[in-house]
Design a protein around this nucleic acid. Structure first.
Length: 462
RNA sequence: GGCCCCGUCGUCUAGCGGUCAGGAUCCAUGGUUUUCAUCCAUGUCACAGGAGUUCAAUUCUCCUCGGGGUCACCA
């Protein structure tokens, strides 16, 4: 069974890049009928917060990505890690190092001055004397000092590292006894049964360290897939300074989960020329072997296009539901279908859609100045009055085509072009010269409101 | 700087020795629309550079250049 995981550290909101790797992991598990697990990496007490962890969970909730097991919090697993640390110590695969931070800094500075690679020099590796007083030791693993370590990566291929280039006896437990990242990742992935690790390629260079841990503990190695970074327009790793990187900000801006997910799945992954993927299609088609090797630049032009695509293709019931987040309650509106059918073609975001709804359902409070000069001139008011009279005299127009017929009759009786009535009427009804079809607008607001808006417009502008 | 990764239209990408280098988005133009938007059509735009290998390289190899990542008692 394929078991994947997403393991964020709760130092802030869920990031767009994190979401993409989470999505990849989720899809790969689903495709194989496996499990997708969530683990909160909160071992660094100073930098983590519960709110951040909750924010991440909220984002997953919004997007409908569910973990298939209990959510693991590393902060609650000290006992487990302590057990493995002891085992490593007992097996002679790790040791206590009494070097002080000052000594370490000094060592690094000397190495830098000599243009050497900064690394721990292994001075306590085989130490058997009396430990210095007043220093709480860290625990370091005995890493191989020579040989080749190969990361068999499903995206990048075999990546070879020379131990002497990159390794030293790195710390696996801090002076206060708490375990460090590379140790706990290996332990937790093993214990959770994770056998396919999909993560950002910024982790590629410390994968050898985790391999050392796997080997020292005798764990089976998972498969690795290191997904390329998402860059900002400047070509650098996407960070919180780059505008909208908080997943939940997309909810507020009016993007749908379907569009965001579709957008993200195509960033660094593709399936031929296909652009539109439903969640079901993603689940059946996704394969990490098709992930690109190169980084991609974050650019939301395509997200806008996808979002409008999904809005156009959503049912009116779905839209009604989504719109409630933006303060629009249409559930009991009798012309809801007509309104949404007309408006969903026109909106890039749910937020825009909400605005468009309001522009129809609420009478204009002002009239665009330029538009007034352009449309309320000549015999515009005569035409409007004639039309108003038609509406008034007609019995119960309901559908757009009823109103269209009314407009037609005025046009033919007065022997004018359609624009002669369209422009002023549009301005009277909506306060501006653009918007959805007038017949639709009138059908939605009804006969009384139509007449009211016409009267009001004439009054306000004469 | 050491180590590692990457390099096809502005952007997302297809390509897995022989293609007019394809699609999408963006942009522009035209059509549809009483308007705007949608929609439809058309168009502009790319293999980083140089050596090899080969009858043939975007595709394989090497070098150069360029970009990125990582080098913690952070994750």
């Amino acid at each position: 069974m394929v078991v994947t995981r997403f393991a964020p550290s709760p130092t802030g909101y869920l990031h767009i890049g994190g979401l993409r790797t989470a999505l990849f992991s989720y899809l790969w598990a689903k495709k194989n009928g496996g499990k997708f697990l969530l683990r909160i990496e909160d071992t660094d007490k100073a930098r983590n917060s519960e709110e951040a962890a909750q924010a991440i969970l909220d984002a997953f909730e919004w997007l409908g990505l569910k973990s298939d097991g209990e959510i693991i919090y590393q902060s609650k697993r000290d006992d487990i890690y302590a057990k493995y640390i002891k085992q490593l110590l007992d097996d002679g695969k790790a040791y206590k190092c009494y070097m002080s931070k000052e000594e370490l800094t000094e060592l690094r500075e000397t190495q830098m001055a000599n243009k050497q690679r900064t690394m721990y020099d292994g001075r306590y590796r085989d130490f058997e004397g009396t430990p210095p007083q007043g220093v709480e030791p860290v625990i370091r693993i005995k890493a191989p000092m020579s040989g080749e370590i190969i990361v068999r990566d499903g995206v990048k291929g075999d990546v070879k590292f020379q131990a002497e280039d990159i390794l030293d006896d790195f710390v696996i437990a801090r002076a206060d006894g708490s375990p460090t990242y590379n140790l706990v990742v290996a332990i937790d992935d093993y214990l959770m049964g994770v056998n396919e690790v999909i993560r950002g390629d910024d982790h590629l260079s410390n994968t050898p360290k985790q391999i050392i841990i796997y080997e020292a503990l005798g764990f089976d190695m998972p498969s690795f897939y290191h997904v390329p970074m998402i860059h900002n327009s400047g070509g650098k790793k996407l960070s919180k300074r780059d505008g909208a990187t908080d997943v939940m900000a997309y909810k507020e801006m009016g993007y749908t989960p379907a569009a965001l997910l579709n957008f993200l799945v195509r960033l660094g992954w593709s399936h031929g020329d296909q652009e539109i993927f439903s969640m079901d299609e993603m689940k059946t088609l996704f394969n990490p072997q098709d992930i690109n090797k190169s980084a991609s630049i974050y650019n939301t032009e395509k997200l806008d296009w996808l979002n409008s695509h999904y809005i156009k293709n959503s049912s009116n019931d779905e839209l009604t539901n989504l719109l409630t987040d933006f303060g629009i309650l249409l559930t009991s509106h009798d012309k809801k279908e007509i309104l949404l059918d007309a408006l969903k073609e026109r909106a890039k975001t749910l937020k825009e859609l909400a605005t468009l709804v309001l522009e129809v359902t609420s009478a204009p409070t002002s009239y665009d100045e330029k538009a007034v000069k352009k449309a309320f001139k000549g015999d515009a008011f005569e035409v409007l009055n004639a039309f108003g009279a038609k509406v008034s005299a007609s019995d119960a127009p309901k559908l757009p085509l009823d109103y269209h017929a009314l407009m037609e009759s005025v046009v033919s009786e007065m022997e004018i072009g359609f624009g002669k009535i369209g422009q002023p009427l549009r301005l009277a009804l909506l306060g501006k010269l653009s918007g959805p079809g007038l017949d639709v607008v009138m059908s939605v607001i009804g006969k009384e409101e139509t007449m009211l808006r016409i009267e009001k417009a004439i009054l306000a502008n004469s």
